[in-house]
Amino acid sequence: MSSLNKKLVLAFLFIFMLGSFGFFVIDKATKSRIDNIGIIGQVPSFSLTNFDGSIITEKQLDNRISIVSFIFTQCEGACPIMSENMSILQERFASSNDIQFLSITTDPDYDTLEVLNDYSSNYSNKNNWYFLRGNIIDVIELSEKGFFLSAALLPAGHSTRLVLVDKQLNIRKYYEGTIESNIFELQSDIVTLLNQG
């Protein structure tokens, strides 16, 4: 074999190896995204009132991907950013009927259905976002025992995390609701879950 042919064979071998390596890494990365949203827990049964007066229970989560947050309308720190981020996600996934949003108030005394109704119109552009209120004791229990999120010194002590819940009511992952890169992550995880069916 001439030295040029030898070089060519070596070059092709090298490119083939590099390609296989690339394929392996891309495949690993894709699989890691699924592994990274493993099941953390199960959403327990609950019953809360939506801003339009309807009763929403855990059955509403069945067969839909849900993004859940705990907020209160008078909150001036994290909540507006969290709700704004949820609003962006609602808009981006507007063409899908498999996704819904739930925001549960940690200040049911102030946040009456009328207040929640006003608040919802600031952020929500589709009827797949439920703004919910209930007995404060129930809300604390749902936050702490249902979603494993701290709920000390309410209303302000609520968690600033968004919860991703899959179609089978499994809690899959938490995202800091005020950090852009976390929202970026949440968006791609929603796509991963949607692609899984």
Binding site: V25, K28, A29, K31, S32, R33, N36, K173, Y174, Y175, E176, I179, S181, N182, E185
Partner: peptide, 13 residues
């Protein structure tokens, strides 16, 4: 540091 985004595979890539 918030551990939300932690994915060992992506971190090493």
């Amino acid at each position: 540091i918030d551990p939300t985004a932690f994915n060992i595979v992506l971190a090493w890539i």
